[in-house]
C-alpha cells in the first residue's frame, strides 16, 4: 500500500511538472501546444542516454536534457509563432506526430518500439536514488523548484510581457514588445523545464519507450491544466493529482463493475470535463463562472468604428 502511494506521489510530481510547464505557455502566453509530450520524451531519452553513456548524476543529465529540449523546441517556435494561435495548435500537432515517428523508428538511438532498458538510477551527489521512498522526496523537491521558478518568471517583467501579449498582441507591440522573440523564449523555457520531468521519469522507471510520449500524453497534460485552472499557480498540480488519482479511486468503488472500469473512467472524464467547462470554465482553481464571464478577449470590439476593422483584418 505504501509503495503504491509513493509510486502515485512520484507520478503526480512528474506530471505536475509537465502541467506547470505547459500552463506557463498556455496560461500566460496564450500558446496552446499539443506537443508537450515531445519535450517530455526528448528529456527522457536524452537523460537516459546520458545516464547510460556518460554520467547518471542529476547535475549532468538534467542540464543536458534541458538544453537539448530547449534547442529542439526552436524547431516548433521559430516557424510556428509567426502564425496566429489556431495555426500554432496545428503546427504543434504536426510536431507531435513527427516526434512519435522519430521516437519509434530511430532505433539506434531510441531503441525503437522496444525502447531503452536498463537506465541507471539517478545519482545525487554519490547517492543512488531508486527506491520509491527516496525517489518521492526527490521528485517533490524538483516539483517545488520548477513551481518556484515559473512563479518567479510569471511575476517578473518577462511574465508581464507574456500576459500583455496574451491579452492584446497589437497593444503589446505598440509598446515596444518584440512579440515573436518573447513567445519563442517562453516556448524554450517551457520545453526545457518539461525535459526535467522526462529525466526523472526515465530514471524512475529505468525503462522508457515511445508509448509514454504520444499525443495521448500531450492531451492528458493539457486536460490537467484546463481542469485544474489555466493561468493559475496551483491549478496544474490539482489537475495532475486529480487525473492520476481518479483511476485508483474508481477501482476502490466496489459497486462498479470492475471489468468495465476503463470505459467508466472515460465516461467520467468526458462528463466531468464537459460539466466543469459549463460551470467553471476557469478550472477548479480558476475564477468562478460569474467572474470568468466578464473576461472576453477584447470587450470593446463592438464599440469599434468600421474604419479600424479592415485594418485589423488585414494584419
Amino acid at each position: 500500500m505504501q509503495a503504491y502511494l509513493l509510486n502515485l506521489g512520484v507520478l503526480i510530481s512528474i506530471y505536475s511538472i509537465l502541467a506547470i510547464t505547459l500552463n506557463f505557455i498556455m496560461g500566460y502566453a496564450g500558446i496552446f501546444s499539443l506537443a508537450h509530450a515531445v519535450f517530455f520524451g526528448v528529456g527522457a531519452y536524452t537523460g537516459a542516454l546520458v545516464a547510460m553513456s556518460l554520467s547518471a548524476s542529476i547535475f549532468v543529465t538534467v542540464p543536458i536534457a534541458m538544453v537539448v529540449a530547449g534547442v529542439l523546441s526552436l524547431a516548433l517556435a521559430l516557424p510556428a509563432l509567426r502564425v496566429r494561435g489556431e495555426y500554432f495548435v496545428a503546427a504543434s500537432l504536426g510536431l507531435q506526430v513527427l516526434a512519435v515517428t522519430v521516437f519509434s523508428e530511430w532505433k539506434s538511438v531510441t531503441g525503437g518500439i522496444g525502447g531503452l532498458i536498463g537506465i541507471p538510477p539517478v545519482d545525487l551527489v554519490g547517492y543512488q536514488i531508486y527506491r520509491p521512498a527516496a525517489f518521492f522526496p526527490l521528485s517533490l523537491a524538483v516539483l517545488v523548484l520548477v513551481l518556484v521558478a515559473t512563479r518567479l518568471l510569471v511575476h517578473s517583467s518577462f511574465g508581464r510581457s507574456l500576459t500583455a501579449i496574451r491579452d492584446s498582441e497589437s497593444a503589446a507591440e505598440s509598446f515596444g514588445k518584440n512579440v515573436p522573440l518573447i513567445k519563442t523564449i517562453s516556448v524554450v523555457i517551457s520545453a526545457a523545464l518539461a525535459a526535467i520531468a522526462g529525466v526523472l521519469y526515465a530514471h524512475y522507471l529505468a525503462f522508457i519507450n515511445v508509448e509514454s510520449f504520444t499525443l495521448d500524453t500531450s492531451v492528458l497534460v493539457m486536460a490537467m491544466v484546463i481542469i485544474g485552472g489555466t493561468g493559475t499557480a496551483a491549478g496544474p498540480v490539482v489537475g495532475a493529482a486529480l487525473l492520476l488519482l481518479l483511476p485508483g479511486l474508481l477501482s476502490y468503488m466496489s459497486f462498479l463493475p470492475q471489468t468495465q472500469i476503463g470505459a467508466i473512467q472515460q465516461i467520467i472524464y468526458g462528463l466531468g470535463m464537459a460539466v466543469l467547462m459549463i460551470f467553471r470554465p476557469g478550472g477548479l482553481v480558476g475564477r468562478s463562472k460569474a467572474k470568468a464571464r466578464t473576461r472576453p478577449k477584447d470587450p470593446d470590439t463592438e464599440a469599434q468604428a468600421p474604419a479600424s476593422r479592415p485594418a485589423e483584418a488585414a494584419r
Partner: peptide, 23 residues
C-alpha cells in the same frame, strides 16, 4: 479606439509593463 488594455492584468501591471519592453 477599442483601448486594447491588458485586461487580465491590474492597473498597476498595465502601466508597469509598458515601461519594460525588453525580452
Amino acid at each position: 479606439q477599442d483601448l486594447r488594455l491588458f485586461n487580465d492584468m491590474t492597473v498597476e501591471e498595465n502601466i508597469l509593463t509598458v515601461m519594460e519592453p525588453g525580452a
